[in-house]
């Protein structure tokens, strides 16, 4: 039976990382009231600059730092358009996605040639936690995983605590539910929203860097392959909470891992890959739980007008 094989759970966990991180990022952005469909593009930016700077500096950690900076800057551009200019957030996000796909491919081909990034690019280490890897079964799941897997687990817990148990988290949620009320109480709506969107950029870039210098040590054109959109689905399916996003990312990661395992047995991976999208539609239609977005999600707030 394939489910008793710990390898599939190890693969599930590994596949969940590039979905859970941007999904949690998206949660932060949308909880403050800014729709972020640019996760896909920001992931690509993160993935590319992680590789580029890892190669140039010789350190994967500096590459990760560069990915976070570039991802944060891209998100800041989205935040500026969405908050300061009150532009349509979906259109902005789409523009960033097309721009990022073009820019990363363009730079890949101009800076590294048409043969791809150099194979000597350093990657982030894989580690096994001493003690944990001695436990039978579970030990195999956590054996030799990328360090970002552990960072993700910590971030999931910290994010959930941050959003639901700290003052700043409460402020973020209030800004996304009723910005006028929050403004009346002296909360700077714009500043909180900038914070939420840039945070989503950092998480998305981390997810992208996981693909390029966590799992592999190279960048290929469009390597995120729609994960930013599945992350969007995970965020909705997880009802705009970090823990829920992580749970949804695990379910979606499992369906991907299952697709790889079942490919040899004549079951089409194309059909299995539909699961995340189908579940999201069902969730939005209220058939699998009820997914309700933050009340002010996607609505620009202009303090001068109200």
């Amino acid at each position: 039976m394939i489910f008793s094989d710990p390898e599939i759970w190890a693969a599930t966990l590994s596949m969940a990382v590039p979905l859970a991180l941007p999904a949690i990022g998206g949660t932060f952005s949308e909880r403050t009231g800014v729709v972020n469909i640019a996760m896909e593009g920001i992931m690509l930016i993160g993935a590319f600059f992680a590789v580029a700077f890892s190669y140039w500096t010789g350190s994967a950690w500096l590459g990760l730092l560069a990915a976070l900076i570039c991802g944060g800057l891209t998100a800041a551009a989205l935040a500026w358009g969405a908050i300061r200019v009150s532009a349509d957030q979906t259109v902005l996000g789409m523009g960033i996605n097309i721009f990022a796909a073009g820019l990363t491919t363009f730079l890949l081909n101009t800076l590294f040639g048409f043969n791809g990034t150099p194979i000597s690019t350093p990657k982030l280490p894989n580690i096994s936690i001493p003690g944990l890897d001695n436990i039978p079964y579970i030990g195999v799941i956590f054996q030799n995983q990328s360090i970002l897997v552990y960072i993700m687990i910590v971030l999931v817990i910290v994010s959930h605590w941050f959003l639901f148990h700290t003052r700043l988290g409460l402020r973020m949620r209030s800004v996304g539910e009723h910005p006028l009320a929050a403004d009346t109480l002296g909360i700077n709506v714009w500043r909180i929203r900038y914070f939420g969107v840039i945070l989503s950029g950092l998480f998305s870039a981390l997810g992208g860097a996981y693909l390029s210098i966590g799992v592999l040590n190279g960048f290929t054109a469009n390597m995120t392959n729609g994960r930013g959109y599945i992350a969007l689905a995970a965020m909705i399916f997880g009802k705009w909470t970090p823990l829920g996003s992580f749970g949804a990312a695990l379910i979606f990661g499992f369906s991907t891992a299952l697709g790889i395992v079942l490919q040899g047995q004549g079951i089409s991976s194309n059909l299995l890959q539909m699961i995340p999208y189908a579940l999201t539609i069902l969730a939005l239609a209220g058939l699998v739980g009820r997914a309700v977005a933050p009340a002010a999600d996607g609505i620009p707030y202009d303090p001068r007008r109200s």
């Binding site: 551009a77 902005l92 789409m94 523009g95 097309i98 721009f99 796909a101 073009g102 491919t105 363009f106």
Partner: peptide
């Protein structure tokens, strides 16, 4: 891919 960069910028 430069044309995608242009397209993205125009949308933005």
């Amino acid at each position: 891919a430069l044309t995608d960069v242009l397209t993205g910028l125009i949308i933005f």
